[in-house]
């Protein structure tokens, strides 16, 4: 299908531009433009991106973070009297539809059994879950890339050692090792928790990156750089990594989505975030038995977990399509 002589090859995307030997930088830029264009055209991914940005803004602006105050006047730890059975005061049905008008009210998501404002609690949960997921994704991606790149580039004994190590780590189911680590580090704060879980979630990416590197290192431009005496670090960072940045970004995004659910599962089992702090998984776990009587305590954190995971997954899918449009070429 590649059609180098035609300036406008119709449906065949200009990804083939790479074959036009026009110098690396030019190709890279057009590639990046193509990727951006394809991503912005991906409706689900754009929806996910917008939703995620809104959720992040809401969570961090409402109750504030660190010492920065937010616009919401309640916090997530103060105990208060339970009003009206702790029912949510949020109303979204406008009066002209027979509802009670659109307003937040005193406790939009209701109150828990000791009267804490559930909106503030949920927002805190979102902050914590997002933070952990982000740290896990980042740490896992960095380690996975490093190990995979080193193994794939140097081959030989280094590769054997690193990949056997990866095999060993892959043998331990993620939830199991994360639970064991969470049992130990759960009460050391979310940053530590995120870091240690990140330390065990890199295995898949390491294999992926190694595979890509194995095929890349046979390419002419790498051999040329090596022949020219370029240092290994420089070849890896300047020449090879930029070529698989797509793979890495996609994997990182999906890792974050998985980490959201992993943190929720750990907190649900009691091996994640510990009192007095909270997270979305912990909220669900705490109030699962309250479902028949006070379902809102269960619904709100759940909906936020799903919304976040779904948005991130959609973004990941959009990125994958943007970086690797192969599959979209079949049109029949």
């Amino acid at each position: 299908m590649s059609n180098p002589t035609t300036p406008d090859p119709g449906p065949v995307p200009a990804a083939d531009a790479a074959t036009d030997a026009q110098g690396m930088t030019v190709v890279a830029r057009t590639q990046a433009q193509m990727v951006r264009r394809r991503f912005f055209r991906h409706r689900a991914a754009m929806g996910g991106l917008i939703a995620l940005v809104l959720i992040v803004l809401l969570a961090f602006s409402s109750i504030g973070f660190a010492s920065v105050p937010g616009w919401w006047d309640k916090d997530y730890f103060s105990i208060a009297t339970v009003e009206n059975g702790g029912r949510p005061t949020l109303s979204v049905v406008p009066t002209w539809l027979g509802g009670s008008g659109m307003h937040l009210g005193e406790h939009p998501f209701g109150q828990d059994n000791v009267g804490k404002d559930y909106f503030a609690l949920t927002m805190r949960g979102v902050q914590q879950s997002l933070t952990i997921a982000f740290i896990v994704g980042l740490v896992g991606t960095v380690i996975g890339t490093l190990i995979g790149a080193t193994a794939g580039y140097f081959r030989g004994r280094i590769e054997a050692v690193l990949m056997r190590f990866t095999d060993v780590m892959i043998t331990i189911p993620l939830l199991v090792v994360a639970a064991v680590l969470g049992r130990r580090y759960g009460d050391s704060g979310i940053v530590v928790l995120g870091l240690v879980i990140g330390l065990v979630t890199w295995t898949g990416l390491a294999r992926l990156v190694r595979g890509e590197f194995l095929s890349l290192r046979e390419k002419e431009f790498v051999e040329a750089a090596r022949a020219a005496g370029t240092s290994a670090r420089r070849i890896i960072v300047k020449h090879m990594l930029p070529n698989i940045v797509g793979v890495i970004i996609v994997a990182a995004t999906l890792a974050i989505a998985a980490a959201i659910l992993l943190e929720a599962a750990l907190s649900f089992l009691g091996f994640g975030v510990q009192d007095p702090d909270t997270s979305l998984g912990k909220l669900i776990s705490t109030y699962q038995t309250a479902f028949s009587t006070r379902p809102w305590l269960f619904w709100f954190p759940g909906v936020f977990i799903i919304a976040i995971a779904l948005s991130v997954n959609f973004i990941g899918d959009g990125l994958r399509d943007a970086f690797d449009p192969r599959q979209n070429r079949v049109r029949d």
């Binding site: 689900a44 599962a265 669900i284 479902f291 977990i305 799903i306 995971a309």
Partner: peptide, 27 residues
């Protein structure tokens, strides 16, 4: 049946399903 209504429905459901925490569904 790529790009059919069925395809879009299933794709969306699949994304929804693997964004679900299993314990939440269980409750």
């Amino acid at each position: 049946r790529q790009y059919s209504g069925l395809d879009y429905t299933v794709t969306f459901s699949a994304f929804l399903f693997f964004s679900l925490p299993i314990f939440w569904v269980a409750v």
